[in-house]
Design a protein around this nucleic acid. Structure first.
Lengths: 191, 191
DNA sequence: ACCTGAACACCGTTCAAGT
DNA sequence: ACCTGAACACCGTTCAAGT
């Protein structure tokens, strides 16, 4: 049995850990667009091909990064719905292009069920009925992903320089900042 | 003045139109991941370099595709908030990976202000106060993008074959389908 | 078990030179 | 004005061969 997989549960083969650590560092430094397998190999002092003994491919690597991101959301057994959605957003923002990485990992079979379950549990603790809790959970997850994705893409726009909009760029009607996020969450949760 | 730009307003140089048409066709056929400048050139019967006389680069091309997508949301002056969010989702789904293309175009300076304004206007017609209308608009845009992105990534997972989840794949707790979407919209709008 | 070296089949983009 | 041909500097991935 070759270990050429980043298996969801047993990903701790310690060479894989080193690879993931370095991948996170590079993504944080140069963004997802500036991240390549070849650059990762170079940073690890190896040949590009060497990576493929440890991991299946780039997409699987990114799915593992996404998984690690979600797994490190702090877990409070008494957390409210507001707590968990806030923690989710915080964690997405810890990693450059975190929302894009999580979303695109879905195409790798990565799913958000665990996260969804945490939202549902928190909603039920807040006194919601099960069906309502489920809708609430799904809505908040989708909203948070859309919001942070927007925010992070705007950040990249700024990093690359010019906005191609009109000269005075003060006219941005739709924004994705802290205050907007909180207003949306209050709206969804019904104050 | 070289025309090497897909300028937002005057993009109608008819060669550019042909390029965009073909790009949309290829994206619909093979997804964003399977779309390349070289494949686009081949489909047009040209050399890859020829494209760069008409358009600045790939990202600008995709931003133009996103713009065309948003511009072709049917416009009803009496539309309700529900109408506009539904039309937005329909249009995102017209194009394979449409949500991803729109979201990533934001990094090119592409912004969603026009769309946001339509949401706000519809909300006001529905009797909302301005601040409420703004929050509602932002929330719905972010939610819809997150939702459709999730949905389209899942579709790609299915196209590529296996889910790497457990054997029986019936256990998907979080989904992005029509019914879920409508429930979320009702929740956000307050029934 | 783990890595190198070298290759394969691609990319996006530029730019002289042609017409 | 518009396109070709050819190059540049990259990609992800595979795989024999080494240790």
């Amino acid at each position: 049995m070759s270990s050429a997989q980043v298996s969801p549960s047993v990903a701790g083969s310690e060479s894989v850990t080193r690879i993931l650590d370095e991948a996170v560092e590079l993504i944080n430094a140069h963004g997802l667009a500036g991240f390549s397998m070849r650059a990762l190999a170079k940073a690890l002092g190896q040949q590009p091909g060497a990576l493929y003994w440890h991991i299946r491919d780039k997409q699987t690597l990114l799915a593992a990064v996404a998984q690690r991101l979600l797994a490190s959301i702090p877990h409070d057994p008494e957390e409210s719905l507001l707590d968990v959605v806030t923690a989710f957003r915080v964690q997405l923002r810890e990693l450059t292009d975190g929302a894009e990485i999580v979303l695109s990992s879905i195409a790798m079979g990565f799913n958000l069920d665990q996260l969804h379950a945490r939202f549902v549990a928190a909603a039920e603790r807040d006194g919601r009925e099960l069906n309502e809790a489920r809708t609430l959970a799904t809505t908040l997850v989708h909203h948070c992903l859309g919001h942070v994705m927007h925010e992070q893409q705007c950040a990249q726009t700024r990093r690359l320089g010019l906005h191609q909009g009109a000269g005075d760029s003060a006219s941005v009607a739709i924004t994705a900042d802290d205050e907007t996020f909180q207003q949306s969450v209050r709206l969804i949760c019904g104050t």
